[in-house]
Write a protein that binds this DNA or RNA. Structure first.
Lengths: 411, 411
DNA sequence: TAATTAGTTTGTTGCGGCAACATATTATTC
DNA sequence: GAATAATATGTTGCCGCAACAAACTAATTA
């Protein structure tokens, strides 16, 4: 951790450059005068900072503002063509890769099913193959590629780029950073899925001006991205955010968690818990269209299928989501009490059923948290839903660029 | 919230002044040369910064270092006589006030029993009376008094100095800041007990160089002080840290929490839960010396009395602490998974039984948390035990002084 | 006396702030 | 329709102040 504690003039310049760049990023189109007003910086200082950003091609002028008295303002925005970014999400049963411009607009994407249980090396090679396609696509566009972001469920050492432990993948100590850097010759960023999703939401999503929020990434497990005081909180070793393993022991479903313990919150509120709930309901022979759907589609009992049943009005599906939503809300309530956040954002694969989960989450939060605190917290769905972690992989590269680019020379 | 995001030269000076002052505070005695080495600042810069601190009487020279080659170093330390600080802790059933010097050394203290249930105004007046005694004592010492810190269990708006809600006191919207400022003419700082205790531990206690830790304040309830990235985390409105109200619903003790809900973690691990556990054990007529002790001392069933019984080897007392320790550890485990802290510090009234609780907390943490994370977390007792919040009241004044004093003119 | 370490002096570089100014437009008046 | 006023944007040149660098003095030991 390169934690310089002292300040000097270079630090001042970097701070202000980064601040102005981020402001232009999130508020574009915006004029120099508006930047000066919003930051409190002097007009002349803003001009100097913007000049530098223009020279580095990070920002460009997009023509005059019309209307209003006085000299028309020259509007600025971040240059989407500042470079491409590649993001890859390594899920438990799939791999997703995307190429975007600097503003996070998707230019290319590909998703493949995968099976992590079979072979770690095979899955890494599969990912590498798709990433190489993505790089080829980026080259065609004749743009520099700024980096490769890689997200995965589990605790990550981001400095070394090593996956420490992913309970749901049963993987330990995988040096993703080294592997992908050698094979792609790109700067590689490795990050936990929920952390990355939180950054995505802050840069491109529903948490743009929000300084304190939690991203709850729900899928096979439940992970948390803690965005506190305007930045990601990673804890002592970067493992912070394992919110799914808070021991709550609430209901009779005493499922053993992938982490090895019993009573973890996520076992009551993850994908599998919903499937369990549906199974239990089907066993007592209630009328449900789910068996019919499974037969028709030759499919197992999956979340998309249950969602489909719920959309068709199937009571067992809807009630199962509701139950899981209440269990989810119990954890949300606890987290809201702990963090006093402005927003709680639900994303990840399970969020495709957000419309069935959210009302129950909100209800449980009302019941289980301190009203003074929960009244302050807005509970919403991720802008990117099941793609939250993929866009997150992009976001961690862009976010780093927004602070580091400043050090680059002229293009 | 005066959140200036931009940086300028004044900011640089403040940052470095504060850094040097804090370094001298925590590492004294220390020379200018050592400060330069540790901070990376230029020798001449350090000299200039130290000169300013000397001129403001915040630091003083305490003579030459002896031994070693070269010119002997002039050692520096923070001037304990820079001013007095008054701290007041408003507990659920007591009031404690102390006067310390700038280094937190206690010069005077007084504690009175109180009963918040009877009359809020009466209790505030009682506190005010003792605080005025403290001020008089401070004046005798012929020192300026830097401020009054006030801690209380509950959520606090620190900017307004208002207690928003204290479940265990049944108080709402008490403008402590205004009341005490008018009556004492001192700068008044109001803070939640656990938050303040965390600051105390960081400035004066076992977390001096620790950037990421949680203070768990256990007494009538359980509060948390979240010290993250080297500073207190307060959340959106300053209510963060209500860790006691995480809904866990673990055991048959379905006690209604003071917050109005059921299943809050603190109901399984607070003072009253231990008393309940002892009562339940005594009812089934086990042999215990507790009834005898109660009769002898004409006392109710209190934590100090149960502790006394445990010290005498009483199995029921020891086992009750052990049970509560395990319940406490369950929450610790969840918090460790969420925060990946370097330390977990247990303090507050209940920590007088720390020796009986801690081993069980550690055992439960091992069982319920992810080993990669919990191996990183040291679980320790507060340096100040039951006084953690009182010293915390001092610490919030000193901490503010360490950053604000820099703005003062020459004395 | 030489070596070593502590701290000071003098001058340099580079930052943002300030105030005056040039520029470009709309609004108002005749 | 032309002249003038008002308004807002952005630039220029100068200043104070920050840390830094290098050369210095100071005080000690070997």
């Amino acid at each position: 951790m390169n934690t310089k504690l002292t300040a000097d003039q270079a630090f001042v310049r970097e701070t202000n450059l980064s601040l102005v760049l981020r402001l232009i990023h999130s508020q574009a189109p915006i004029s120099r005068a508006q930047v000066a007003l919003m930051t409190g910086l002097n007009k002349s200082t803003v001009s100097s900072l913007v000049d530098e950003l223009l020279a580095k091609n990070l920002v460009h002028e997009i023509g005059n503002n019309i209307g209003g008295a006085g000299r028309p303002a020259m509007m600025l925005e971040v240059n989407a063509q500042a470079g491409n970014v590649i993001g890859a999400e390594l899920g438990v049963d799939f791999v997703s890769v995307a190429v975007t411009d600097f503003m996070g607009n998707i230019l290319w994407r590909k998703r493949e099913e995968a099976d992590t249980n079979v072979n770690q090396v095979k899955m890494i090679n599969q990912t590498l193959q798709i990433v190489k396609e993505a790089i080829k696509f980026g080259k065609k566009k004749n743009q520099r590629t700024l980096g490769l972001g890689l997200t995965t469920p589990g605790t990550v050492n981001i400095n070394e780029g090593v996956l420490i432990f992913a309970p749901n993948l049963h993987w330990r100590n995988v040096p993703f950073g080294k592997i992908f850097a050698e094979q792609t010759k790109l700067p590689v960023y490795v990050e936990n899925d929920a952390n990355a999703a939180a950054v995505a939401e802050h840069l491109f999503g529903t948490a743009r001006q929000v300084q304190d929020f939690l991203f709850v990434f729900s899928g096979v497990g439940i992970g948390g991205g803690l965005f506190l005081n305007g930045k990601l909180y990673r804890g002592k070793n970067g493992y912070a955010g394992e919110i799914g393993h808070f021991p709550i022991m609430a209901e009779p479903y005493q499922t053993v968690c992938h982490c090895g313990n019993r009573g973890c919150w996520e076992t009551y509120a993850n994908q599998y818990s919903i499937i369990q709930r549906v199974q239990a309901r089907l066993e007592v022979k209630r009328s449900s269209i789910i068996p019919k759907l499974m037969a028709e589609q030759n499919s197992g009992l999956t979340i998309p299928l249950i969602k489909q049943a719920a959309d068709a009005g199937d009571k067992e599906a809807i009630d199962s989501f509701a139950e899981a939503g209440l269990a989810m809300g119990q954890g949300f309530a606890g987290l809201i009490n702990i963090f006093n956040p402005k927003k709680m954002i639900l994303g990840g694969p399970l969020s495709i059923a957000g419309e069935y989960l959210l009302p129950n989450i909100i209800q449980a939060v009302k019941r289980h948290s301190m009203p003074e605190i929960s009244q302050q917290a807005e509970i919403v769905l991720s802008k990117f839903g099941p793609d939250a972690s993929l866009i997150g992989a992009i976001a961690i590269v862009v976010d780093d660029a927004l602070t580091r680019f400043i050090h680059f020379g002229k293009k």
